Computed example of a mutant assay.
Amino acid sequence: MAHRATAAPRTGPWLDVDGPRGSGAGGEEVAPRRAPPRGNFAALDLGTNNCRLLIARPEGERFVIVDAFSRIVRLGEGLSATGRLSDAAIDRTISALMVCAEKLRRRRVVLSRSVATEACRQAANGAEFVARVAAETGIMLDIISAREEARLAVLGCQALLEEGDGPAMIFDIGGGSTELVLLEGKRDNLRIIDWLSAPLGVVSLAEAVGGHGDGPAERLAAYGQMLRRMREAFAGFAARLPARAPVRLLGTSGTVTTLASVHLGLPRYDRAAVDGLIVPAASMREIAARLSSMSLDERMSLPCIGDERADLVVAGCAILESILDIWPADRLGVADRGIREGILRALLDSASSRQLG
């Protein structure tokens, strides 16, 4: 089936950040040469763990957010064991998508794109699920490739990458996969020179390794096993990384925003405080070690983690530490933006180009 993915990591050089137009500039703030159509744009990102919608009104080169929606749906729950999306996960997800569909209608969206990622790529019934979503909600999901997922994530958050000339890495820890993208050049003139999509994210890794909710010894052993799995998943890509010292690192995912919130000691999540934050890598490692040693109940009691993230945050910590092992930057940029913002940027560019035609 065209929408299914193999178990092997996906890699490929020279990924074009700008997509079909291919200017090579790779800048997130690409200015359209003519004003885009009037009305709201929308981007929907259905991942293995989350369903996220962003509706925005274009104003010149930027967007003004009109509405947003995010819900943990765990679409990929049990997928690694059965190879299929479960009925319960599908029902949860369609319920969330119905909310999204109502927002799209109410906000009179004129241009949109809805994408699905690793869970739908892997599932034997992924295409069947997409057809049911279209029939019941009217939303047409596009199951994108790992290559496109990496491109959109970079396009959406690269404006937060620290300035500099040396190599940089942007990563996205998802529910079912982790994308690592190696770039070079200045922030407004980036080239993607290598990338990896490893088929392990917080959901799939947590399901693959049991024991992280047991006693201290079992938690330590489980975390070590997670680290070993990620080390193996990243090995080929790590061997291709430049030998000179890493310079810039930027992460976009629930894992990095959650750990950044813990770093700041926030009583509740605050996007304005987290998006664009620079955190010492040593602090992120210390938080990861602390969370991995806690019981499930202890993690649930922490602000900004709670019930919904407590069972998955340890897997995210293992993935993050493994990234820091292969790209040992002194500090880590945090982005609360990614695929949805990348979609909006691409829609704005596309709409402006069509007007010129």
Results as ranks from 00 to 15, higher is better:
Arg33Phe: 07
Arg33Ala: 10
Arg34Asn: 05
Ala35Ser: 14
Pro36Lys: 10
Pro37Thr: 02
Gly39Ser: 11
Ala43Thr: 08
Asp45Phe: 07
Leu46Ser: 10
Gly47Cys: 13
Thr48Ala: 13
Thr48Phe: 01
Asn50Ser: 12
Arg52Pro: 06
Ile55Arg: 12
Ile55Lys: 13
Arg57Leu: 09
Pro58Ile: 15
Glu61Leu: 10
Arg62Lys: 00
Ile65Glu: 15
Ala68His: 13
Phe69Val: 05
Phe69Pro: 02
Ser70Gly: 00
Leu75Thr: 07
Gly76Glu: 04
Gly76Tyr: 08
Gly76Pro: 04
Gly76Gln: 01
Glu77Gly: 14
Glu77His: 12
Ala81Val: 10
Ala81Tyr: 10
Ala88Cys: 12
Arg92Tyr: 06
Ile94Gly: 01
Ser95Gln: 09
Ala101Tyr: 13
Glu102Lys: 02
Leu104Pro: 12
Arg106Gly: 02
Arg106Thr: 12
Arg107Gln: 15
Val110Cys: 09
Ser112Met: 09
Ser112His: 03
Ser112Trp: 02
Ser114Gly: 03
Ala116Glu: 02
Glu118Tyr: 10
Glu118Gln: 15
Ala119Pro: 04
Cys120His: 06
Cys120Gln: 05
Arg121Glu: 01
Gln122Tyr: 02
Gln122Gly: 05
Gln122Asn: 07
Asn125Lys: 14
Gly126Lys: 05
Ala127Gln: 06
Ala127Leu: 08
Phe129Asp: 03
Phe129Pro: 01
Val130Phe: 04
Ala131Thr: 00
Ala134His: 15
Ala135Trp: 06
Thr137Gly: 09
Asp142Ala: 08
Asp142Gln: 10
Asp142Leu: 07
Ile144Cys: 04
Leu152Phe: 07
Leu152Cys: 05
Ala153Ile: 02
Val154Ala: 10
Gly156Gln: 00
Cys157Asn: 07
Ala159Gly: 03
Ala159His: 04
Leu160Glu: 06
Leu161Asn: 00
Gly164Pro: 09
Gly164Lys: 13
Gly164Met: 06
Asp165Glu: 14
Met169Gly: 12
